[in-house]
Amino acid sequence: MKKTIELLKNHRSVRKFKDVPLTKNQIKTIVEAAQMASTSSFIQAYTIIGITDKEKKKELAALAGGQEYVAESGHLFLFCADLYRHAHIGQWKDADVQPSIESTEKFMVAVIDASLAAQNAAIAAESMGLGICYIGGIRNNLAEVNQVIDAPEYVVPLFGLTVGVPDQETAIKPRMPFEMVYHENSYESDPDLLKDKVREYDRGISAYYHERTEGVRSDQWSDQMAKMLERKSRMYMKDFIEGKKLNRH
């Protein structure tokens, strides 16, 4: 158990990989580990698409915001919310499943299922000595990503996961204080207490960036969040999801 806890607590994102593709056995092991994640009502509402075509990887890297390491990783996995097979099961079994499939609840189930599977995949990869990085940038241009992978209705690409042999040693980015994340019995909503905790966390994050960049940066987490959330991004998402016949009611 100690080794597992150490692995989890030592996670860091890797954005520079050696030019070594994953083997078929490594890919199979990672996907099989992902499949063993918990799934709501055994619905298994996700699909994993492995991108081995170099040109497609380059195209997806560009669509994700020009992140070159997406193309240079040992393997790129795309995790998709997927209720396509379930829609067909409804047709085959003469069951009216469409209202359920198109509900917000089932869309949440699909997103959660895919996320749980992805975290299993990430842990499996790291346990094999590989590095990983989640790629939310594919949601910058979902219509184009959708075309690259030929995703049908009821299938939504959610995020990528780059996996490969690390070619860098990165520091662990400090997470929020325990007390900010864990509340007992009820939500602790006192804004003054929250402000104190955020200030404490800001000091730690600022020190982290200062050391990592040799004084070039000293960002505070709260400043990052304020600036990031002030910008409107991916505001097309609701229409795109509904166009996939998901999250309609």
Rank of each mutant, 00 (worst) to 15 (best):
S222G: 00
R234I: 00
L193Q: 15
K197L: 11
Q220S: 14
K195P: 08
E188Q: 13
D239Y: 06
V198P: 03
Q220K: 15
S206R: 05
R199L: 07
L194T: 12
R234M: 00
K195W: 08
R212A: 06
E214P: 04
R231L: 08
R234H: 00
R203C: 12
R199P: 07
V181L: 13
Y182Q: 08
D219K: 10
S222A: 01
E200Y: 14
I205Y: 07
E184D: 11
E184A: 09
E211W: 06
L193M: 13
D239S: 04
R217T: 04
Y187D: 06
D223Q: 04
E200F: 14
D239F: 03
R217I: 10
E214Y: 05
V181R: 12
R212L: 07
E200D: 14
Y201V: 02
M225E: 05
G204W: 05
D192V: 14
V216C: 07
W221C: 00
A207F: 05
D190V: 05
M228F: 06
Y187P: 05
T213V: 03
L194F: 10
Q224N: 13
S233R: 14
R203A: 15
N185M: 05
M228P: 06
R234A: 01
H183F: 01
Q220G: 14
S186F: 12
K232G: 11
D223N: 10
D196K: 13
V198N: 01
Q220C: 12
Y182T: 07
K238N: 10
D223A: 14
G204T: 07
S222E: 01
A207S: 06
V181F: 12
D196L: 15
V198W: 02
K197D: 08
E184N: 09
R217C: 03
H183P: 00
Y187S: 09
T213S: 03
M237K: 03
L193I: 15
Y209R: 02
M237S: 04
S189N: 14
L193E: 15
E214D: 09
M228L: 09
M228K: 11
E184Q: 05
E211Q: 08
T213W: 02
E230T: 10
S233F: 09
I205F: 03
M237L: 03
S206K: 04
K232L: 07
Y236D: 00
E188L: 11
K227E: 13
Y208L: 03
D239N: 07
Q224L: 14
M225N: 15
D239I: 03
D223E: 06
Q224Y: 08
M180D: 00
G215I: 02
Y201H: 02
S206C: 03
S218L: 12
G215V: 00
D196I: 15
R234C: 01
S189D: 09
M180N: 02
R231D: 11
K195C: 08
T213Q: 02
S222Y: 00
D192R: 14
